[in-house]
Nucleic acid binder design. Structure first.
Length: 422
RNA sequence: GCGAGCGUAGCCAAGUGGUUAAGGCAGUGGAUUGUGGUUCCACCAUUCGUGGGUUCGAGUCCCAUCGCUCGCCCCA
């Protein structure tokens, strides 16, 4: 084999791309209705942005980034997630000065150097939203509701919403100390990864799947017990609003997300049918990130969805059928070929999809191809049609065929006739 | 980064040391030079991911390397 796509990357071929287009169409519609506006930020940023934003101790920053130097020796990094870039743009362009709340969404490739697995790639795609400028629990409920709308519109059924509060910075540092104090005597019994994390990033130990660690963690102090009255109130408000919206959730006290910037609300949507890589959307509140990156103090919340995983679930299902006629132009002979090309162009200007057969092969072969590409109607121009400027309209489903003047096809009443059975 | 399994055509594959690498799908051409989804015929891998080694002989054994899959880790 010669050249191949780099490890962890892949081509999305036309047959799969239609599912991506479907997903994007649905998501766009829902986001638009909720008044979110699209933003695009660069695929690479200064390395520093991610180090500061995501946290140097996180796995993402410490071992999964695609970092390189450009020709002027600037350290750049392919973005491993979307939030840092959006926040940077928010600050850089003074979006806060537009007043009010900014509701933004983005869609694009992200890059993490990880071991590829099903539903997990080194170049993968995320759809995400960020709501900047509101500390109101209604913002938390809203972003969760929008995520759920998208997932449900895509037809996901076995969804579970996991909810937690990681408190504010003060709550967390107090809890962190309590957790370290509790775990230190057991250090030797923890799995190696967790021992490593004990001082670097102890909250993540709660997530460990190692059975012995789990047993120890089970008796550990709970983060929810360390929430300040304000944090607790916010969390209760969010829950109450979710109930108002009829959104079911499970409190998951060990849910600690892998990025340092989260505060208060943390959540994940999981789809049980995906097994291990079942998290299909994850997010939370990050009330200090804007300030930490040099902007004005701005509370914010957001989430991201892993699109490869959604596509995995979508591909089992049939897509809605094409609602526009697909016309296939079959010609034979020079005059007919010329007329076919012109008529095809005119029909495209009317809004139809028209494919012109360029093979010059026998009518039979061309009609066969029309059938194979799923055309609804075959337009046939041969020598005799070319002479009197007519065209044979052949419905592929029924096989019926009528002879009409070429220009007649441009009239509006043909629009529905193309789609009719005959 | 760790553990395990696997790479034969566009796809699914048989082959497990003996001369010319089954078969199916898809594709191309023809039967049928003015009409498709059926049928029939022909063509379609100088080579088994790549490189090296063992052997009289390697798709088959060994080593390396690249890639894929599953689990851990991590995350969306």
């Amino acid at each position: 084999m010669g050249l191949q796509a780099p490890r962890g990357t892949r081509d999305i071929l036309p047959a799969e791309r239609v599912y991506w287009q479907y997903l994007e169409t649905i998501a766009r519609q829902i986001l638009d209705r909720a008044a979110y506006r699209e933003i695009c930020t660069p695929i690479f940023e200064q390395t520093h942005l991610f180090e500061r934003g995501i946290g140097e101790a996180t796995d993402i920053v410490s071992k999964e980034m695609y970092t390189f130097s450009d020709r002027a020796q600037r350290s750049l990094t392919l973005r491993p997630e979307g939030t840092a870039g959006v926040v940077r743009a928010y600050i850089e362009h003074g979006l806060h000065s537009q007043g009010g709340v900014q509701r933004l969404w983005y869609l694009g490739p992200m890059f993490r150097y990880e071991r590829p697995q099903s539903g997990r790639y080194r170049q993968f795609h995320q759809l995400g939203v960020e709501v900047l400028g509101s500390a109101d629990p209604r913002a938390d409920a809203e972003v969760i509701a929008v995520a759920l709308d998208i997932l449900q519109a895509l037809g996901l059924k076995e969804l579970t919403l996991m909810l937690n509060s990681v408190g504010d910075r003060e709550d967390r540092s107090e809890y962190r100390q309590a957790l370290v104090d509790y775990l230190t005597p057991y250090k030797a019994d923890l799995d190696p990864d967790s021992q490593e994390r004990l001082h670097r990033n102890p909250l993540r130990i709660l997530d460990s799947k190692d059975p012995r660690t789990q047993a120890i963690v089970k008796e550990a102090p709970r983060l929810l017990d360390y929430l300040s009255p304000q944090s607790r109130h916010h969390f209760e408000q969010v829950q109450s609003l979710l109930q108002d919206l009829g959104i079911r959730y499970q409190i998951h006290p060990a849910l600690v997300r892998g990025l340092d910037y989260y505060t208060h609300t943390a959540f994940e949507f999981q789809d049980l049918s995906l097994g291990n890589e079942g998290t299909v959307c994850g997010g939370g509140r990050y009330d200090h990130l804007v300030e930490e990156l040099g902007g004005p103090a701005t509370p914010a919340i957001g989430w991201a969805m892993g699109l490869e995983r959604l596509i995995l679930l979508l591909r089992d299902r049939p897509l809605p059928p094409r609602d526009q006629p697909y016309l296939y132009m079959v010609t034979r002979g020079e005059a007919a070929e010329r007329q076919g090309l012109i008529l095809a162009q005119q029909l495209r200007h009317q809004g139809y999809t028209v494919e012109v057969d360029l093979s010059g092969s026998a009518f039979g072969k061309q009609v066969k191809r029309a059938d194979r590409v799923g055309a609804t109607v075959c337009l046939v121009i041969g020598e005799s049609e070319a002479t009197d400027r007519t065209v044979q309209v052949k419905w592929l489903a029924s096989g019926e065929q009528v002879l009409v003047p070429q220009q007649e096809l441009l009239s509006e009443n043909w629009r529905s006739r193309f789609l009719a059975a005959s």
